[in-house]
Design a protein around this nucleic acid. Structure first.
Ligand SMILES: NC(=O)c1ccc[n+]([C@@H]2O[C@H](COP(=O)([O-])OP(=O)(O)OC[C@H]3O[C@@H](n4cnc5c(N)ncnc54)[C@H](O)[C@@H]3O)[C@@H](O)[C@H]2O)c1
Ligand SMILES: NC(=O)c1ccc[n+]([C@@H]2O[C@H](COP(=O)([O-])OP(=O)(O)OC[C@H]3O[C@@H](n4cnc5c(N)ncnc54)[C@H](O)[C@@H]3O)[C@@H](O)[C@H]2O)c1
Lengths: 230, 230
DNA sequence: AACCGCTTGTGAACGCCTGAACAAAGTCGC
DNA sequence: GCGACTTTGTTCAGGCGTTCACAAGCGGTT
């Protein structure tokens, strides 16, 4: 009867849903009560048709001829994207990047709470970052067990990232966000997402060079150009 | 004959090429002189066949029966991904995240050099971060013009990101890496890449919930549980 | 010199995602 | 109450990226 058909949501769509949710939060703060797909898509930087398709995975949640209820859609998206309950996260490697993350208010407002900060440097252990004490790396398993954290964030040097990852997984963490420039190996059932800032810059550099079009290499890659030298 | 086929490199491939380049650097440090696609793919966390296809966009650059020359492939990738020349970058918004980026050694070693740090906070202006002085935000245009920077990194609060972006573009920057949680609008010919950490966490939360919430149902659908229903 | 094993390079099929056009449906105005 | 307009939800086609599988080519060996 009530066919709550569990449609599979593509991961690319899930990422965009998170963006829509943030835009909706801004609209709600602005006092808006409804939005059209066009307006929402514009604010999110995507195609209106694509946005409607994304939302259609959640079943009909708009009103034809009017648009979407800001409050209603926000609630629905929050529900789909992992509930409104606070998700405990542990952060390993409280260096420059780790400190910035731990101190960032934007995560807590979206339900992500750092419940454990860990580092191996004795000079860092014991200090407070973002109102939380930094624990020694040896207590990783204990912290995960005590807090029930299911998300782990790795901001350690690359050399130890795999080891830290293994320990997180063994302790029960099943979702990992990795900032270290290495490909982590994890058993099935564990999800890893990688943020690689060097790669982002490198892609920009490539696009830059491709635009310039003067370099020989680019000429070889262009549609109808022949390699001039060599 | 030298048939210069019209090959365009997909952006997804470019991103992976950057990863291969980093892995090759590590192999070179380890004294290796050649690698197979399988080994390289394993270290990069991708499919071997996909890796070979990625490299095939650059034309034949391996030796059949042997593998790839570490030094040779490294040189070729460096060339394709934007040359070896140092690329000047400006960084706007020297807060927690911006400071971490400015202080990071991993960028300089890959040819990215921060030549200008800018902030609007009088308390930050004049200080040194990563060996560079922080300039007042008003000097953005002057700094870009003087340094010839073509890449801009935005780590300001979201409210001012679009304004900063507009000024960067007007000053001649054509590649932008944006950490602020807003969709930037830029004219054609300017490339923007966005790093959205909140979205990454939200996707992990979704995968987490998907695992937990429908565990009994999904268990049968997961790859490692291919047994039919008993 | 010819054979053999190994690895690359590539062609083709498959699946996923994106972009656009169209029909359904609800509301506002009269 | 009814018509017309607006906006959603869906369907369809196209492109892109990924994966598999196999032929081609090179080095080493006899
Ligand atoms: N800072 C950046 O802008 C930036 C950019 C791109 C990538 N990254 C990557 O992010 C990671 C962190 O960068 P960072 O600049 O913050 O480095 P960092 O050296 O400032 O911080 C690393 C921290 O990890 C801690 N650590 C080392 N081994 C550990 C262990 N076994 N267990 C727990 N903690 C341990 C160190 O004590 C240190 O505090 C690195 O892998 C780096 O390559 C950083
Ligand atoms: N820190 C994190 O972990 C994190 C995570 C996700 C996203 N972000 C995003 O990255 C951005 C920066 O985050 P942060 O934590 O470093 O914030 P921050 O407040 O520590 O730093 C922002 C800096 O930008 C400067 N600034 C403000 N207006 C400016 C202007 N017009 N011109 C130049 N500089 C200006 C401020 O003086 C400040 O130094 C924000 O948009 C934030 O949402 C940060």
């Amino acid at each position: 009867m009530s066919e709550s058909r569990p449609r599979i949501v593509p991961e690319a769509t899930v990422a965009r849903l998170a963006v829509y949710l943030r835009v909706l939060a801004g609209l709600a703060d602005g006092g808006r009560s409804s939005v059209s797909s066009g307006e929402l898509a514009s604010a999110a930087g995507v195609n209106p048709a694509g946005l409607r398709k994304d939302l259609s995975y959640l079943g009909p949640c708009g009103v034809r001829g009017v648009g979407y209820s800001v409050a209603g859609l926000r609630e629905r998206l929050t529900e789909v994207l992992g509930g409104e309950r606070s998700r405990p996260c542990v952060l390993v490697g409280i260096g420059r990047l780790g400190s910035a993350l731990a101190d960032y208010a934007g995560f807590a407002s979206r339900g992500f709470e750092f419940v454990g900060l860990l580092d191996s440097d004795p000079r860092t252990v014991g200090t407070e970052v973002g109102g939380l004490p930094v624990h020694p790396a040896e207590e990783l398993e204990a912290v995960v067990a005590r807090t029930g954290a299911t998300i782990g964030v790795i901001t350690t040097p690359a050399e130890v990232a795999q080891t830290v990852c293994d320990r997180l997984v063994a302790a029960g963490v099943r979702s990992i966000l990795n900032f270290a420039p290495v490909a982590l190996t994890v058993p099935a059932g564990v999800d890893v997402r990688k943020v690689d800032l060097s790669v982002e810059l490198q892609v920009l550099a490539f696009l830059d060079q491709q635009r310039d079009g003067s370099a020989p290499v680019v000429a070889a890659l262009r549609a109808d150009a022949r390699e001039p030298v060599r």
